[in-house]
Design a protein around this nucleic acid. Structure first.
Length: 502
RNA sequence: UCCCCGAUAGCUCAAUUGGUAGAGCGAGCGGCUGUUAACCGCUAGGUCGUAGGUUCGAGUCCUACUCGGGGAGCCA
């Protein structure tokens, strides 16, 4: 009796005959034996076909199958260390569903633009698949954490009537003639829910119309936002710390293989232990403008230039060897591939070398009162091996609803969490202003219409309590954990500024 | 909006100071019983992003435009 199995289940059915339903990832015919790499969505498995085990015409047909042809393969499961999952299938029967011809994405390298234009197909490749699995774990860990800690899920609206932090960054939609906006945060709605349930969270897509074309920005991304009644800033930091730690632990436990395939820095993730670093904004300003930062940047520049020299040396050596001649064909080809790789790495390195002095200058010239720029966050996070909390930003640089610090009225009780190794901000959060008069004054100062905020002000009228929360960007978190440079790889169908592919 | 870089075969990239467009991968055919981005032989595949200009001659130089990448500003 043959059972249909998924590749991820094969370890427990060694010695049995099973059927796998999947797609051809790679075919290596070799005379009288063929190695089919099959993927079925749960993993990869090598299937070995010996010529005399199948009808001759079927064996020939399989030999000419293109990548991504859909197949059902039946065979005996046996241990084989040379196969990706440690087991392989000794094939006894093959059913071809749909042969594929000229699949555009090959196991070789492709450019960013090409892959995004073919995102619907690229999703089948190893790298997007691994990232997708890790994203799934991250989201599951997020829900588990809040559900297990007494939080109630509240689904806040996508169409919103009021802005969280300034209206110029919102997408406007025509709602039966009335202008509404796509949500950029569920926070204001969540605050009212917190007064009902105590501890709540929302989780969904969020939209920003900012003209930001960087590796950290999407116009549509997913954000989870907890909001808690009766909490202060230290309480929020503890919550965020425990929360992020739990996500990292879950990914390490559930997705070790995927992290390895992606080449993620597993040791660095394991080193992400609590407590995280805690700095105030003012301390960060001191660090940025200090000699220590200038030395740090200079050391980094020196390191980049050292790498550049080494690469240029290798380049020259290879070119000299080529010019000398007498190389075998395979050596020439190997050299050509290496040259190509070095050249593209040199371009990337040169950008870092060019940017270093600019970023060093931005840091040195930083004045108290400005919001931290992307490069400033990068510098601070590069200087620390653990995530860094930055607290107490200047009031003027932050949103109207943040509570002023009781000791220093110039700053608010807020925090950002910077992921280590230069990834930058993954969380922004704050204690909310809970005093009716102070909040009304801030709304006036920002020039907003108080009528629009009537219901929000009501929360301060009826049993107001200290409360606060934060938002964590899912794609940024996934990018940090997986080691991806650009967050567009961390969502299935990314929406970029001025660019929607599919 | 500004700055830098780029656009050559299906994909990734070469092409010496302007002189007959190449390679690898992929595709097709053939070979190989243990392959791991396999290997070996053969074949097909191009209006060099678009438009104009300089020149005996332009992939290469000049101008404009289109598209893409990176960075800045702005922001999660």
């Amino acid at each position: 009796m043959t059972h249909i199995k998924r590749i991820s289940e094969l370890q427990v059915v060694i010695g049995h005959e099973v059927t796998l339903n999947g797609w051809l990832y790679k075919n290596r015919p070799s005379g009288k034996v063929q190695f089919l790499m099959l993927r079925d969505g749960s993993g990869l498995c090598q299937c070995v076909i010996e010529k005399d085990k199948l009808p001759e015409d079927l064996f020939g047909q399989i030999k000419h199958l293109g990548q991504e042809s859909s197949l059902s393969i039946t065979g005996l499961v046996r241990q084989e260390p040379r196969s990706p999952g440690g087991v392989e299938l000794a094939v006894t029967a093959v059913e071809i569903h749909t042969p594929a011809v000229d699949y555009p994405i090959t196991p070789k390298e492709h450019g960013v633009d090409f892959l995004l234009k073919n995102r619907h197909l690229h999703l089948r490749s190893q790298k997007p698949w691994c990232i997708g699995r890790i994203r799934h774990t991250v989201i599951d860990a997020i829900r588990r954490f809040f559900n297990d800690n007494g939080f109630t899920l509240i689904d806040t609206p996508i169409f919103t009537t009021i802005a969280g932090e300034g209206e110029q960054t919102l997408f406007e939609v025509d709602y039966f003639g009335q202008p509404l906006h796509l949500t950029q945060t569920g926070q204001l709605y969540l605050e009212s829910a917190a007064m009902s349930f105590g501890k709540v969270y929302c989780f969904g897509p969020t939209f920003r119309a900012e003209k930001s074309k960087t590796r950290r920005h999407l116009t549509e991304f997913w954000m989870v936002e907890p909001e808690v009644a009766y909490i202060d800033l230290p309480g929020l930091l503890d919550l965020a710390e425990e929360f992020v730690f739990s996500i990292v632990q879950r990914v390490l436990k559930d997705n070790h293989d995927e992290l390895e395939t992606l080449g993620a820095d597993i040791a660095a993730l394991e080193a992400t232990q609590t407590p995280f670093v805690r700095l105030s904004y003012s301390e960060v300003v001191d660090i940025l403008t200090s000699d220590r930062t200038q030395k740090f940047m200079a050391a980094q520049l020196e390191q980049f230039q050292g790498q550049k020299r080494m690469m240029e040396q290798e380049l020259a050596q290879i070119e000299a060897a080529d010019a000398k001649g007498g190389l075998k064909k395979w050596q020439q080809e190997k050299n050509a591939r290496r040259l190509q790789k070095i050249r593209s790495e040199l371009v990337e390195l040169q950008v870092k070398i060019d940017n270093n002095p600019k970023h060093a200058r931005l840091a040195a010239d930083f004045c108290w009162g400005k919001d931290l720029g992307g490069s400033d966050e990068t510098i601070i996070s590069l200087m620390h091996a653990r995530p860094v909390f930055v607290t107490h930003y200047p009031k003027a640089a932050k949103a109207f609803y943040m509570k002023a610090d009781t000791e220093d009225d110039r700053v608010v009780e807020n925090f950002d969490l910077l992921a280590p190794a230069g990834f930058g901000e993954i969380i922004g959060g704050s204690v909310r202003e809970d005093d009716y008069e102070k909040l009304l004054a801030r709304i006036d100062e920002e020039g907003y219409n108080p009528d629009s905020y009537q219901w929000y002000l009501d929360l301060r009228k009826y049993g107001s309590v200290p409360h606060g929360g934060f938002g964590l960007g899912v794609e940024r978190t996934v990018a940090w954990i997986t080691g991806e440079k650009h967050i567009r790889q961390c969502i299935a169908f990314p929406r970029l500024m001025d660019k929607v592919y599919l």
